[in-house]
Amino acid sequence: MSSTTRTMAAPRTRVVLAALLRKELRVELRSFEAVPAMSLFSVTTFVLFHFALQRNALSGDLASGVLWVTLLFAAMLGINRLFVADAEQGGFDGFLLSPADRSVLLYSKALTLLAYLLVLEVVAVPAFALLLLGSALWPALPGLLVVLALGDLGIVVIGTLVGALAVRTSVRDLLGPMISLPLLVPVLLCAARATSPVLGAVGAGALPLRWLVTLALYDLVFGLITFAVFDFLLED
């Protein structure tokens, strides 16, 4: 044994999490690899929908479908980038060499993806209201925020898992969306159904509770699955 007696207390989760989040923020602010692309992509997609559907204003089912499909595809860009810096620059190994709890990496990545999505929506939702939405945004906003929160949660738990699954493969940009999109269909389905009455042509309708509960349960189940299997993606 080494002659120096060292206290080998495990590093505190909160300290590690704060350090990892600070790292994520700095890397993104300096490289601009994810968030600007996601936001710009969403606005471009709204323009595409305008021409593809040949409509100036959308409401109801169509509005909610266009909004959610756009958000989902924009989220794919973030999911694909989420672990790239760690896989390419050795952050995974550096993390595994430390005594820090493995699940802190999951928490930090999930929170990072959530932050990506929030910034995306700060850009995409007003842009959508401006460019495509037939009715006013303000009355619909409270209901929309609830659905967005639950939808984001679903994208976060599945995106973090699939991002980690795909990043160390030879075709990660393809596998990420191919695996995560089918898994996200129930999220899309529930979120789109819950959003469509809110974006109704004759003013915001009530939130359909059934879809919100289903969505929340789906988030919960896949949150637990992601938590349970994430560690196995780290070790070698």
């Binding site: 050795g90 190994d93 060499l97």
Partner: peptide, 14 residues
């Protein structure tokens, strides 16, 4: 343990 390999295990942006 300290590991020093071919990869620096450092973030290039930081």
């Amino acid at each position: 343990i300290g590991l020093l390999g071919h990869e620096p295990l450092l973030y290039r942006e930081l």
